[in-house]
Nucleic acid binder design. Structure first.
Lengths: 193, 193
DNA sequence: ACCTGAACACCGTTCAAGT
DNA sequence: ACCTGAACACCGTTCAAGT
């Protein structure tokens, strides 16, 4: 039967979860699907475009956030991080696809953050810059966190050292988000507080 | 004559500047140096380690920054961005090497930023988190900026559209840095204003 | 329209053997 | 100690030809 885009993306996501980004190759994916490597190029222009589709599938799990601008920023950040952490190398893949301009969903998330910052009182151009700063933080933090997590999971068997207060990754993550929110709160001239 | 680490790094940097990161391969580098590919593995454990050495060479141009904590953060950020922009794909290379933990100089830059944030009144653990946030911003912004710059340089010949106020990249960059500095200023409980 | 087969032009890494 | 030669096990992408 025919090969459809969604089957390809589903198989790619399965490959990612089982073996990681380095083993997500066009040839291996084709083998898994029982087709020749060339077949994939009927459905996707190149590997970047396919990875962008996988990134968008991962990001589909990020929920809409409600509340005031502050709560919405916090919600989007937490949801984004959770989505990235639930797939092997998810942060690295989405980060690369975003940088390559291949993730439509990431752009929508950026727009939602821009809206929230606009509500905080920023002019549109400045709001997008602030929203980008938030995205860079979430991606950078989570790429880092996930690489440590995956390194620890392979072998290392937790050294159980300074891992009581220090490794509360959630709290560390929120600390950075709050720093950015504080910056947004005071940087805007129209808000006194 | 013998091959030395610094010759290898110099040739790699030249290759990067001329053809970009995608064409900086172990085989091509060996060809350029007139040795067999295997020779490189006597001097470097693997490609990641070699790229880390190239990243550190690029980062050697980042100057020490003086002044109060605020001026030092601004100085390091500006110096870092300048260093990245002066090599083809410099931001992407350094970003990847930092994420892979292969850049010793990037860790020192992080330490300098941590010192500055500590001087602003943060406890060490929080200071490093804030410093990381700054690094994620500079890397994210500059990867983005450079990919657009290089895309425009190839062909596109400037559309000359909304590129008067909007594309003042320096100002856009400083806006984000200031946002972070504002966040650092207010997030700390011991500093009033 | 959709896919195969086969090719093109490469990769990173290893390692016995040489000097 | 330092490097060669050759191999191993792959890559992404293209494209005539088939159905």
């Amino acid at each position: 039967m025919q090969l459809h885009k969604r089957d390809v993306v589903a198989a790619a996501t399965a490959l990612l979860d089982s073996y990681g980004l380095a083993d997500l190759t066009m040839r291996r994916l084709a083998r898994e699907l029982g087709v020749s490597p060339g077949a994939l190029y009927w459905h996707f222009a190149n590997k970047q475009e396919l990875l962008g589709a996988v990134a968008d599938q991962i990001l589909a799990a990020v929920p809409e956030a409600a509340g005031d601008w502050r709560a919405r920023i916090e919600g989007v950040c937490a949801g984004l991080r959770d989505a990235l952490l639930s797939h092997t190398d998810g942060a690295e893949l989405v980060s690369a696809s975003f940088a390559a301009g291949q993730s439509a969903v990431m752009r929508r998330i950026l727009d939602r953050l821009t809206d929230a910052v606009t509500e905080a009182g920023f002019a549109p151009a400045h709001a997008e810059l602030a929203a980008r700063t938030v995205v860079y933080y979430v991606l950078g933090f989570t790429v880092d966190e996930q690489s440590r997590l995956q390194w620890d999971a392979a072998g290392a068997e937790l050294p159980a050292d300074q891992s009581v207060l220090d490794d509360d990754a959630d709290a560390r993550f929120r600390f950075g988000v709050d720093l950015l929110i504080d910056g947004i709160r005071v940087a805007d001239p129209s808000v006194l507080r």
